[in-house]
């Protein structure tokens, strides 16, 4: 009887069905060369672990140390914030490595126009491949009470997924919540249709959630696994880094904001009072 590496490997991890496991155990007893292979496979695991551990001997790069050093971190934030003002890029690590996508100018232009509340949504639809009906109807433009997307933006904590009723089950999840420098709340939503996905940034304005920026990302629920291209994400992240005040909301602050219905009226009143 021959035992494949796959069986042997699964046997090693105790992952074979009882019958298969018994057959493999029997074969190991009766076949010395199979036994040798099995023992070598155990050594292979240790050998691989040893090789991966070799990186422990290499010093942690300074940039990475700084990133996780509390004091260094706040200094870096300051630095990256002033960089943000200069060139709109906050991801210092990718700055020099970032390949500017071919359609970058078009994307940037379409999104730049969408920034600025009250200026209206001037997103170039051409940049968003036709998404599913669910996305078109509920993921774009001004979101008002009664819309399922409004419910998501208004009440769902980050990480909770809304599944559309349409066949194919388009999905939407809030992935980031933050406050802008002028005191508004914004939330980034990942939407997946069956063939197309969107990353969209909404900001609360009075009783509505308004789309501020949106980019198409490849893949969808039909593919099971959706890696968004970072080039596209960079565009959204640039928008976020221009708007964001400090760090994203913690879960606790997010919960508070949801509880208070994203009310920034108090803040606005305070500002007005100040000016009077």
């Amino acid at each position: 009887m021959t035992v494949t590496d796959e069986k042997l490997s699964a046997y090693l991890d105790g992952m074979l069905e009882p019958e298969d496991a018994a057959r493999t155990a029997q074969a190991l007893l009766s076949d010395p060369s199979l036994r040798a292979r099995f023992n070598a496979m155990k050594v292979a695991d240790k050998a691989a672990a040893t090789v991966f551990g070799e990186i422990d001997k290499r010093p942690v790069p300074e940039a990475l140390r700084n990133l996780l050093d509390r004091e260094g971190n706040s200094a870096r934030r300051q630095e990256s914030r002033s960089e943000t003002q200069r060139n709109g890029l906050s991801f210092a690590v990718f700055r020099e490595r970032l390949k500017v996508p071919r359609n970058f100018a078009a994307l940037a232009a379409s999104i730049a126009l969408a920034i600025g509340f009250g200026a209206g949504i001037t997103l170039d639809r051409g940049q968003i491949a036709p998404p599913d009906r669910f996305l078109t109807a509920q993921g774009v433009g001004v979101i008002e009470p009664g819309n399922p997307m409004f419910e998501l933006l208004q009440n769902a904590p980050s990480g909770q997924t809304l599944v559309g009723k349409e066949p194919g089950g388009a999905k939407a999840t809030v992935v980031l919540t933050f406050k802008t420098k002028d005191g508004r709340y914004c939330r980034e939503v990942e939407m997946q249709g069956t063939v197309e996905g969107l990353r969209t940034l909404f900001c609360k304005q009075e009783d509505q959630w308004r789309m501020v920026a949106s980019i198409a990302v490849p893949g969808g629920t039909a593919h099971g696994y959706t890696p968004a291209t970072t080039e596209n994400l960079q565009v959204i992240e640039n928008v976020i880094s221009r708007l964001i005040d400090g760090a994203p909301l913690s879960r606790a602050s997010e919960t508070d904001a949801i509880k208070n219905g994203w009310d920034t009226q108090k803040f606005v009143d305070e500002l007005k009072g100040h000016h009077r």
Partner: peptide
């Protein structure tokens, strides 16, 4: 190892940004 350190740095940056997830 060189790529690993770049990648680790990028991961840490992203994790800090997306930590509410």
């Amino acid at each position: 190892m060189a790529d690993a350190d770049d990648l680790t740095q990028a991961t840490v940056e992203r994790a800090l940004l997306k930590r509410s997830m």
